[in-house]
Simulated assay, not measured.
Amino acid sequence: MYKKLFLVCSVAAIFGCGQSQKQETKETQNEDTPVTATVWDAAKAGEWYAKQDWLVGANYITSSAINQLEMWQAETFDTAAIDRELSLAAGIGMNTMRVFLHDLLHQQDPQGFFQRMEQFLEIADKHHIRIMFVLFDSVWDPNPVAGKQRAPKPHVHNSGWVQNPGIKALQDSTQYPRLEKYVTETVKKFASDKRVVCWDVWNEPDNLNQSAYGAVELKNKADFVLPLISKVFAWARSAAPEQPLTSGLWAGDWSEEATLKPIEKVMITESDVISFHSYDDSTEIEKRIIQLERYGKPLICTEYMARPRKSTFESIMPILKKHKVGAYNWGFIEGKSQTNYPWDSWSKRYTAEPPLWFHDIFRKNGTPYLQKEVDFIKNIVKQ
């Protein structure tokens, strides 16, 4: 097992006595009082993490799906691709995947959605892969619509990925009960499932998508997300999951408490384990890790690896392993998401695959993009 001695620091010392009182709630309740789930302290988080193998995996969507809806909807749920592709992941030593869900899937067909999640987990478990599910996501197309999805724009990175909740739902508090139902029922359904390793409640919640959908995006998104993300943590926690909750820091200055944005403070305060994104080089990611180690909780990098930015497996994985940080790279297999193309494909025209792939490890046919990379991943996982 992958062990670590954690610095157990008082959450009260980090965030003030109010948070400490929040964590003591469960202890002070008598048997007749309903149990209120609380944020894990550093000791509980460290105990959980010490039982895990080094978490190594990727952000995963089937090669046959352009977005979360197409991956999960009944008409396009591709179990053959899932089985084949997770076999590739297991073959290079990966033991986990980060997988995005969508609130419209629950609204559309909750029982069918849960049945397909169960099928997915069965296949993943066959390959000894555990799943981190992502409940909400503020990146890419702000106007999701259930049903048949559009075809990819040729040579454009993530041309069809969709946000959830969409911009209209985000601004409409009358839809919050529906979102609450999605969160609580989904988490409760798999709250004690050992095949689920973690719940990522919201991906990049205040991302404005300026390089892609900036002209139609909500400029004051953080004003809507900030109060809602606190609710989402509470909704998920009310389902009493045995797995930790998290939401990953992704931009900004994390060097001290004073430089954190209000939404980042909520993300850290409410996370049982601390997660983050970094597509920068080894020097920058190590600096980020050291900054976040002050919280005394396990760290998981839920997004990294963009080859042209000097974020590669060879440069980043040794840093993550050195600091006992979980490692989920972005992109697994070439497909309809087209994340082998770079972010600038939204503004720069490409007519063929880029000279150096941005993300992804395997080609559509299952052969490695770079054999030396998969050899490196296998070796570092075994060490």
Rank of each mutant, 00 (worst) to 15 (best):
Q149D: 01
G214F: 12
S173H: 13
L228G: 06
A89S: 06
E353W: 13
E264R: 03
H155E: 08
G326K: 00
D172A: 06
K261H: 03
G160L: 06
H157L: 09
K321A: 05
M132Y: 03
A169R: 12
A50L: 12
I61T: 10
K372N: 15
G147D: 06
K336S: 00
V201Y: 02
V273Q: 07
G18T: 13
T312R: 02
D41N: 14
Q291M: 05
S247V: 04
T28L: 15
Y328N: 01
Q107S: 13
Q371A: 15
W54M: 08
Q107C: 10
R349P: 13
V35N: 11
G18A: 15
Y341F: 15
P205L: 03
A13W: 08
T186C: 04
F114V: 04
A212Y: 05
Y369K: 15
L320E: 05
W72Q: 04
E118L: 06
S138E: 07
L86F: 06
E353C: 12
N329G: 03
L121Y: 01
E180M: 11
S211A: 15
A191Y: 06
D41G: 09
V216H: 02
Y350A: 07
W357L: 05
D344G: 07
G16M: 07
S311Q: 07
H106V: 00
K372T: 15
E270L: 08
D78L: 02
E185N: 14
K265R: 13
E75N: 11
D141S: 11
A352V: 09
L370E: 14
Y49N: 12
E257P: 02
